[in-house]
Design a protein around this nucleic acid. Structure first.
Lengths: 233, 233
DNA sequence: CAGTGGTCTAGACCACAGG
DNA sequence: CTGTGGTCTAGACCACTGG
């Protein structure tokens, strides 16, 4: 039999990675087509396809019909952050989770909010703010606007023992939306809730959630100082 | 022919999503196995497999051999951030990119740095700090430690006209590593470089890069105030 | 137009883990 | 032990797009 044979898509991927790392296939250069590789590797074309497709997803390869496959010259790193329910996040760290409702009201949102949610500014929304605790210390502060038109049942929920976070996940799961990460100076009120100095730098996660085009909720979560979001590349 | 037939994995996925959204398949509940679905949908099992696997990757389904497939009760949202070379990031916004080297030296790193890089603290490393500009205004400040043992060629590069960012990508591409996002108060020196107030809240991206187990570089990038990292969900 | 990747199929074997 | 997903194969058709 010819040199080596690769029978699993993972092993094919490994071999492709080796050639890229060793610069046998240089950055920006084209690599053989699937059929040729399949023959060389002694496997079916679909196996090669699986391996290459996976590498293309991670940004290492660029593939185009007819043009073929080439090694990305300047691969765009893709960092995947897992955003879990905060309770799970805390428990995963081995800390005790706690929850405290701070405010619940029905009122007209700031224009910036109604604008971002693409809703009529005169319509009232449900506002909920709450504090998440880890080992009884402040962990994250969340301010949330909920669109009652999208989730009428929310008006009947007090959010005193369950976070809006989890409640929404249970009642309107599998939504789409946008998320943004930034750094902000903690406003005075927030700072006192989080137990840090005013204008302390904290990580902010802003999230807008839609269910079939209509905005369901918009939330800003401010984490305790020094909080990090980490992942592997 | 039976009701509808689904011939592409995307259409199968669409139908599965519909059933999940409509709660026909409730959160936490098991769904039929691949063979049954294939028969119902009038397609091959591998087509169903492709569709379900993709949904499992995105966290909507949980699959285990023998146990079958079930709808995730509390799906973990996965936000994928694309971390491009800063020059590209700036240019993609339609702004003019600029680069200014601030410091380049060879010295012993702080213990925290050598520790994180798992290197001998007494060994000297190459330190490079630089400012990235957008439309001539500060965009991001980067402080970087480079391990010459891993990239000897770096010692011959001045980094005066090319950022270490891009230089490294060209010379040791396709590395692995870790990345972390946090909020920090800009130290006095950094603040003056970025042109913001001292202790201003800025987004920090810390990145450790390895090439086959050995640390290549560790970098902290501080973005201008109000910078956001965004993505869709 | 023609080469390349994208996908589908029918069938098969296997690894894993639930019971 | 056995059901389920994970994967491989050989072959086929097709969509896209570069030349």
């Amino acid at each position: 039999m010819k040199p080596t044979s690769f029978q699993t898509w993972q092993s094919v991927q490994g071999e492709v990675l080796r050639r890229i790392h060793s610069r046998e296939w240089a950055p920006g250069a084209a690599i053989p087509n699937e059929a040729d590789l399949a023959q060389e590797f002694g496997c079916a074309r679909s196996t090669v396809n699986r391996a290459l497709q996976s590498l293309a997803d991670s940004g290492l390869l660029e593939r185009r019909r007819k043009a073929g496959t080439r090694v990305s010259a300047q691969p765009v790193t893709k960092a995947t952050l897992e955003i879990a329910v905060i309770r799970h996040e805390v428990e995963a760290k081995g800390e005790k989770y706690g929850y405290r409702l701070i405010e619940r009201s029905i009122c007209r949102p700031p224009i910036a909010t109604s604008g971002a949610m693409q809703l009529d500014p005169s319509k009232k929304l449900l506002f909920v703010s709450a504090l998440h605790l880890a080992n009884d210390a402040p962990y994250a502060f969340e301010e949330r606007w909920i669109n009652p038109a999208a989730v009428p049942a929310a008006l009947d929920e007090a959010f005193e023992s369950i976070s809006a976070n989890e409640w929404l996940l249970e009642h309107v799961p599998y939504t789409s939306g946008e998320i943004a990460f930034s750094a902000v100076a903690a406003p005075q009120e927030t700072a006192s809730i989080l137990g840090c100095a005013q204008d302390c730098a904290v990580l902010a996660v802003d999230r807008l959630t839609r269910d079939a085009q209509v905005s369901v909720t918009k939330v800003r979560v401010l984490f305790r100082p020094n909080h990090q979001l980490r992942t592997n590349l």
